[in-house]
Amino acid sequence: MAAVRRIQKELSELKTRPIDGLSVEPQDDNLYEWKCAIKAASDSPYKGGTFHFSLSLPQDFPFKAPSVTFTTKIYHPGIDEEGHICVPVLRDQWKPSVTLSSVLAIIQEKVNNPSPDDPFEPEIAALLKTDKSKFLATAKEWTKKYASP
């Protein structure tokens, strides 16, 4: 019960004070499944792309971390083939007082600034380290292919 009320509260907060470049919409029948989309920043390698992901909240939400799955393909060292993203706050650093808006902000930050440290996809990270121009080209190509409206 507390979970539902908290989720409603977080949602209304996100509606009143939306994060730039990020849209959030819960599924019609299920408050525990959110459909979100990130519009990549103009200075990021994914300029012009819109990346959709789903945020699913567990039944005992504030005590367990939500899980995030990208539904749009993205060439990113921190996001794997199946759309799983590796951010510590969703894994071992979760605590019940973390708000969903801060989680979303962290994800947005991660998407906009791909870094080769602590990668989920080591090959992409290696490419980003050794041959940045090639990485940028591939990222741009993937963005055009999968993430353009």
């Binding site: 507390a2 979970a3 009320r5 908290r6 509260k9 977080e10 504030p62 005590f63 019940p96 007082s97």
Partner: peptide
């Protein structure tokens, strides 16, 4: 003022 877990 409100609890960080339930925010209610």
């Amino acid at each position: 003022r409100n609890c960080v877990v339930c925010t209610v």
